[in-house]
Amino acid sequence: MNIQETVETCNIILTQIGSHIIGKDAVLRQVMLCLLADGHILFEDYPGLAKTMICRSFASVLGCEFNRIQFTPDLLPQDLTGSEIYNQKVNDFEFKPGPLFADIILADEINRATPKTQSALLEAMGEYQVTIGGKTYHLTSSEKPFLVVATQNPLELEGTFALPEAQIDRFLSKIRIGYPSRTDEAKILTNRINRKSKSFSLSQIITKDVFRKMQQIVETVSVSDEIKDYIVEIVDRTRKAPQVRVGASPRGSLDLMALARANAVLSARDYVIPQDVKELAPLTLSHRIILNIGSFIAGGSSEEVVSRILTNVKAPRKEL
């Protein structure tokens, strides 16, 4: 697998999913980037915008095992990780894996679960392993990906537990889907009529080990010192901006670089250019920034802060 093959495969995947998820090519590309960069995704948008469908579609075409977990206040950590159950036949405890042991997990309405359950998931996301009964189980391997796609609804906040900033930091990017245009919505209706069925199925395009190889291609992308400085400068500015209480962490820098490398691969390059960084900085950094109270009351948003930072940081273009 080389870059060119990766690009071609990605294009086939995006075309196939794009034929069912209408008018969301940019979002699909962002999801593809996150998957290539091996990062977790947080979807934040209103219900009915195809968040679950996007997730399920990618799992189908990538040949990955998919599990959906509906988060509720009574969900326990063991319900995610699995637990040891006594087996009377063998007269011993045996481990029964939970839904976390899939390749792609959809954590639906993650903010509805209690902080304890959220922490269990987020720990698994960070460590790529769970420890039950003193025994450690790995969630990922060279052939098996582990990706969490979480969703949260920004409208209904009653009875929810907002994700702590430290935990939000574990998501590579926060993606907003947005409503489709009128034309696209009409096309969605037409597609539904032609399909004559509520659901649709997508055929598998690659296997998950091929997908892992595609992720490995991203690791071969080179990043020059100037690009590293550019990333560091942008992230550092998020910490110094007057509107910000807490800026992006070094994990933000790492994630921005990872996403920029994935973008380079999707653009058939084996090196990162400043445009990759600038284009993806809002996607990677805005959810990691906490505004101070003054900016929050004034109606400022972290996306605006990142945009302003990007227009103030000198891009590596003019120096020899």
Partner: peptide, 23 residues
């Protein structure tokens, strides 16, 4: 650089924050 300086002289955006692609 030579070409971009020339184009800047002709009215292209001189902003430092522009990447080569944006320029």
């Amino acid at each position: 650089y030579q070409t971009s300086e020339y184009l800047e002289g002709k009215g292209a955006d001189k902003s430092d924050h522009l990447t080569a692609v944006e320029f």
